[in-house]
Amino acid sequence: MIITQKYFLHFPVCETNTPIIYKLVKDYDLEVNIFRALVSSEGEGYLVLDVKGEAGSITKAMEYVASFGVTINSVERGVVRDETLCNHCGNCVSHCKAGALHIADLKTRKVAFDDKLCIACGKCVDNCPMKACSTVF
């Protein structure tokens, strides 16, 4: 069965020179869509991506990724919204092209965040006057 899964990967310092993503495509036959990536000044790597392929292949691929000491997180997307800081003004909504930040109820204009849709572009981070949105990296 073909599925699409989103991952947030944290690479330890020693593995940023290994072409791990290349292997996912070549050896595990996965389609990879990278949303956000960074190599920090300390040499660590961060990656938010979608992988699409056979469920079994994805599992094996992630075992391969984990063998390098890479931390795999399938919950976090790289962007975090702290609802306690949100005033629900909705300024973020017109800047979120992915539609992850949206008006949940037109009557009250309450803002909601669907992190499955988030592509970690980070536009909300700059656009939130209350700093309710932040990026993990």
């Binding site: 003004c89 909705g90 300024n91 909504v93 800047h95 009250t108």
Partner: peptide, 13 residues
């Protein structure tokens, strides 16, 4: 054109 507000209708309610 997409619209958005800086004022919170939710908090005003």
């Amino acid at each position: 054109i997409v619209t958005s507000s800086l004022s919170s209708y939710y908090k005003a309610l």
